[in-house]
Design a protein around this nucleic acid. Structure first.
Length: 366
DNA sequence: AAGACGGGGCA
DNA sequence: TGCCCAGTCTT
């Protein structure tokens, strides 16, 4: 494995560590999860930061810690509330896995986040990156924490032409970091690598002239920093047509539905909707029939108030938004509820349905 | 190894 | 539009 990173011999590791860490201690951003090294808070921040930008995470992190200050608070929380805390952040399985995992910590580790790679990696939602991040930042363990930033930085510094889109490549970068990591300050080293990737060694047009380790960088030396990292794979998104309805009863309450516990947007709330596989020309009666047969709701649809388009990483939703009325016989249960406009905010809705609700409120003002 | 899984920011 | 972001889990 180690000969795959043969460029390691060209670098002065100790100087590299010093330049990198010195820069980090001087330039690091003031972030809420850097105020202390509470393993729980480090853990929460690392889960939130998965595939999510720092600026997006900050307000979510502050509110999450406010609502669930300790492992016990999170372990005891209702799922509805943790989903509400995550509403709009995306990748909602992260927070359900996090709650599962803190319960494991309470049961199996006496409420203390484990500090060995073997144990921490068993926790739900803790993969190789997060394990290394928590261990190094909270406990000072010299484990690699290889994320997209680190692969980009290391691919340039060591001129590694492995395709970072392939799962197998991560091991190469982990091995490189094992060789490079500071054993005096693994926390600063790992965070510095990520901070450098976020602030200086960016995906496009890296700021090499401001880089604290440019003199160690083989890509910079050869002027090929813009060719690295190598990353293939294009995601092809498919289109899904939906029709959804704000259905109101006699007293103005609205029908909402809880999504299934698995799959896309699991356990979040939505407005009644059906997928339209074969668009039929404007047949409202046909659509009402479709609502009836597919979700057991018999609405009186009045009109379309607009469309919502929402792009996910792997698909695109195009939602035709209807308003309508619901029969008086409608009864709620665990999955179906009638709620007032003011009660809506207590439930966690994915963004496309937030857009839809906003559209509905605007239609009322006219 | 590939796909599922959110959402927003930026060229 | 397409790419990228402090990735992990399932198939």
């Amino acid at each position: 494995m180690s000969n795959e990173v043969n460029n390691l011999e060209k670098i002065n590791i100790e100087n590299f560590q010093n330049d990198l860490i010195t820069w980090f201690k001087r330039e690091q951003r003031d972030l809420p999860w850097r105020k202390d090294q509470d393993p729980y808070k480090v853990w929460v921040s690392e889960i939130m930061l998965q595939q999510t930008r720092v600026d997006t995470v900050i307000p979510y992190f502050n509110r999450f810690i406010e609502w669930f200050p300790t492992i016990d608070d999170l372990a005891d929380a209702d799922e509805e509330k943790i989903l509400k805390a995550w509403e709009g952040l995306g990748y909602y399985s992260r927070v359900r896995n996090l709650q599962t995992a803190v319960r494991e910590v309470r049961e199996n580790y006496n409420g203390v986040v484990p500090e060995t790679p073997e144990e921490i990696s068993k926790l739900k939602g803790v993969g190789p990156y997060t394990a290394g991040a928590i261990l190094s930042i909270a406990y000072g363990v010299p484990e690699p924490a290889v994320d997209g930033n680190v692969m980009r930085v290391i691919s340039r510094v060591l001129s590694i032409w492995k395709d970072i889109a392939r799962p197998a490549s991560r091991k190469v970068f982990e091995q490189a970091v094992r060789e490079l990591i500071s054993h005096e300050d693994p926390s600063a080293f790992n965070q510095a690598l990520m901070e450098l990737g976020a602030l200086v060694c960016t995906p496009t047009s890296p700021a090499c002239l401001l880089c604290p380790v440019c003199e160690h960088c083989q890509a910079f030396e050869e002027g090929i920093q813009n060719e690295l990292p190598v990353k293939t794979k294009k995601t092809k998104t498919r289109n899904v047509q939906l029709s959804a309805a704000i259905l109101v009863d006699e007293s103005g309450r609205i029908v909402i539905h809880k999504r299934p516990s698995t799959g896309l947007l699991a356990n979040l709330w939505e407005f009644p909707n059906v997928e339209i596989e074969h668009p039929i020309e404007g047949e409202r009666g046909h659509l009402e029939e479709l609502f009836n047969t597919s979700i057991g709701i018999d609405p009186d649809l009045e009109k379309i108030i607009g469309q919502v388009e929402h792009v996910f990483s792997h698909l695109i939703w195009n939602i035709k938004v209807y308003i309508g009325k619901i029969n008086s016989e409608f009864e709620g249960n665990d999955q179906w509820k009638l709620v007032t406009i003011d009660e809506i905010e207590q439930f966690a809705f994915p963004v496309p349905y937030q857009k839809m609700f906003k559209m509905y409120l605007e239609s009322l003002e006219k």
